[in-house]
Amino acid sequence: MLSEKSLEAIAFERSKYPPEESRSALLAALRIAQEEQGYLRDELITYVANLLDLPPIQAFEVATFYTMYDLKPVGRHKFCVCGSVSCFLNGSDRIIRHLSERLGIGLGETTEDGLFTLQEVECLGACKDAPMLQLGDRYYENLTPESLDALIAELQGGSTDVR
């Protein structure tokens, strides 16, 4: 169900912990599975659990507890806009409004072309550069409507430098 590369990455994670503590690699294994397949289907969660010799329910508990796991399909680019207090004080609501209008989707929704998902998240630890959002591996900070427009244009242009 997972590629050789992902399996290797999981094996590497496992090697960080004492041999009897394979469960410690669970969070990482779920992340790696999600990175490869986009989101965590039930079967994928079960598969990961079996890989680590864990009862599937344990993996399901973890997958539903942490916010970085997607249990449903999401767009290719997921805007995670921080809405916690420092960003809020610096206009995060406006950022969300702007994105929502530009993309034509509400919070938690994905554009029809499957390109974009918009989410509001809690504090991402970049409060001094508010307002900000996370997109893939990166933080985009001190956002303005203009910088957002530029970002969207770049992504719609098919830039792959963002994931």
């Binding site: 916690s84 207090v85 420092s86 809690e122 504090c123 630890g125 970049a126 409060c127 550069d129």
Partner: peptide
């Protein structure tokens, strides 16, 4: 784990 709103130093 730096996650408390307002905290961004450890990063």
């Amino acid at each position: 784990d730096e996650g408390e709103p307002g905290t961004c130093k450890d990063r």
